[in-house]
Amino acid sequence: MDIITITDLSKTFKVPKRKEGLKSAIQSVFRRQYETKHAVKNVTFRVRSGEIVGLLGPNGAGKSTIIKALTGILSPTSGEIRVLGFEPFSQRKDYVRHIGALFGQKSQLWWDIPPADSFTLSQHLYEIPKQEFERRKNDLVEKLGIQDIIHKPARNLSLGERMKCEFVMALLHRPKLVFLDEPTIGLDVFAKQAIREFITYTNKEYGTTYILTTHDMDDIEHLAHRVIVISGGEKVFDDSFAALRKIAGVTKHVRVVTQKKVVLPKKGVRGVMHISPYEAQFVLDREILGIRDLVKAIAQKTEIIDLTITDPPVETIIAQLYQAKA
C-alpha cells in the first residue's frame, strides 16, 4: 500500500541577490533584487508502507526541501503531495501526529536539562497515557542502551548519545512514518552502527516506514530498500541499491601509508596517485578486488601503518548516473 504519493512536486524560492562590495550592500537596503531558485522540479514518486527509502544527493540538490514539503513545514509551489491520506501543509496539525522526524543537525532536546525530562514534553504533546509512555520509553531506551545517560543534561552528552536520545524523542508516539535528515552525520562508526541497527529493528518490529536523506553511501547500503537520487532539484534515479551499484560501480577511495615502499595490486585499482614512496591514494573497484584482498595484497609486501577507506563523493556517483543515461 502506498503511504506517500508525490506528483510533479516543485518548490521555488525567491532569493535576494546582490553584487559584492559596499555600494551594492547600501543599494540593496533601498532596492533589493531577487532571483527565483528552483529547489525542486517536477519530482514524482511513491513510497509503500514498511519501506526504507534513501534520498541521496549532493548539497543543495533539493533533498531537504522534499523532506520539508513531506513533513508539512513548507508549502509546495506546485504539484500534489498525499501522505497517510493527508495533505501535509494544509492539514499540518492533524498530520504531524502520525509522523516522526529527526534532523541530524537540529536538536529537539532541551539543552540544559536531562533528555528524560524532554521526553515528558512528547508525552503531553502526543497525549500518550502515562503507563503506555513509560513502557514505550523503557523499550526504546533499553534497545538503544542509553539507560545511564538519559538523566544527564543534554549539553553533557556526546553527539552519538544525543542522537540516540533524539531517536527516542522522535519515536515515542509510535509514528507510522519517520523522516530522517542526515541521521548519522558526524557520528563515529560505533554510533552509526547502533543507529542503523535501531532503524532496522523498528522497521521490522513495528513496520515503521523510513525516508532518509544522507550523504553516506554506507547508510544507504545498510538500510535502504530503495534509493532515489536527487540532483539539481530533479529525480535522476529511483531503484534498488543493487541497481545503483550496477550503474555507478562499487568503488571506494583508499589512502594507504606503509612502512616500506608501497606496492599496489594491478587488478581492481585505478587512479593511483603516489604522494610519497610510502603513501598512495587510489580508487578501488570492489567488484574486481574486495577490501580484505586489497589489504592482504599490500600487507604481503610491507607493513601497513595507516589505511583510510571512504566512499566516492555523491557528485561522482551522479556523474556516473548521467554518463550511464547518455
Binding site: T71, K93, K106, S107
Partner: peptide, 14 residues
C-alpha cells in the same frame, strides 16, 4: 536563524 523553527512546526499543536 538556526533552522530549528522547523521542529516547532512538527508538533501536533497550533
Amino acid at each position: 536563524q538556526q533552522g530549528t523553527f522547523d521542529l516547532l512546526l512538527l508538533a501536533p499543536v497550533n
